[in-house]
Every structure is written in structure tokens, then in C-alpha cells.
């Protein structure tokens, strides 16, 4: 029950972060798609876990920031490279984009797991004391 409430909160927070980022920073739709996918995955894979909501929220906000930065830089790089290569690089960007994106998402998620697990272990240690 507690985890279901966490998930609902996570979905609401994810939607709020996407809308806030999109309207305040006016970036393109591709970065927005990446943010939506990240938030969807993050809520489904991190929020059902046993752990404090505060830590989950902190991890999610950091993740959104990383997602925005990574995709902005990668998109700018892809635009420059595509111009230099007469559009060929845009195909490479489309093919490798999701795989490279997942590389940091999986890394970030595994670090978030550790962040959450440490709080769980600390909680268990307190109870033992």
C-alpha cells in the first residue's frame, strides 16, 4: 500500500517535472520524450521499492537534471555532426541514441538503488540498536 502511494506520487512528480522543464526551458520535443521515458521507467522501477520517499524524490530530481543535460548536449552534438555529414549522422543518432541514453539511465538507476539501500540498511541498524 505504502509503495503504491509512492508510485502515484512518483507519477505526479514526473509529470510536474516534465511540464516545468518543458515550459520554463523551451527545449525541443526529443528531449521531452527522453524525460518522459526516463520518468516512466524510474517510477516503475524505483518507487515500488521499500525505502524513504524523500530519497526517491531526490534521486528522481537529480535524474531529470542529468537527463536534460545529457540529451541537450547529445542533441546539439548530433545537430552539428549531421550538418557536417550531410545528414548521415542523424541516422546514427537515431540508432545509438536510445542505447547510449540507457547506458547512463541504468548507471544512474543502480546508483539510486544503492542510495536507497543504504537508507534501508541504516534504518534496520537503528531498529537493531
Amino acid at each position: 500500500m505504502r509503495e503504491s502511494i509512492h508510485m502515484l506520487f512518483g507519477f505526479a512528480l514526473g509529470a510536474l517535472l516534465c511540464i516545468t522543464f518543458y515550459y520554463s526551458l523551451h527545449f525541443n520535443e526529443e528531449i521531452l520524450q527522453a524525460l518522459v521515458v526516463f520518468n516512466l521507467f524510474f517510477v516503475l522501477a524505483l518507487f515500488p521499492l521499500n525505502g524513504s520517499l524523500q530519497r526517491k524524490v531526490v534521486a528522481m530530481i537529480f535524474g531529470n537534471g542529468t537527463c536534460f543535460l545529457w540529451n541537450t548536449i547529445f542533441y546539439q552534438f548530433a545537430c552539428c555532426a549531421a550538418e557536417q555529414t550531410n545528414g548521415t549522422f542523424s541516422i546514427v543518432y537515431l540508432i545509438l541514441g536510445p542505447i547510449l541514453n540507457l547506458f547512463w539511465v541504468v548507471s544512474f538507476w543502480s546508483l539510486s538503488l544503492t542510495f536507497l539501500l543504504n537508507s534501508r540498511n541504516r534504518g534496520a541498524a537503528k531498529i537493531a540498536d
Binding site: 516503475l44 521499492l49 547506458f103 541504468v106 538507476w109 543502480s110 544503492t114 539501500l117
Partner: peptide, 20 residues
Amino acid sequence: YEVGVGTYIDGRTRVQWLMP
């Protein structure tokens, strides 16, 4: 995510970093 949650249930932290 299945592997990661497995390590989480087991309480393993270091090995999680190898998931990528």
C-alpha cells in the same frame, strides 16, 4: 531491472554498480 531488484532484495550494494 530484474537483476537490480534482485540485488536490492539481497541487500547487495557494490555489485549493483556493474549493471550497465
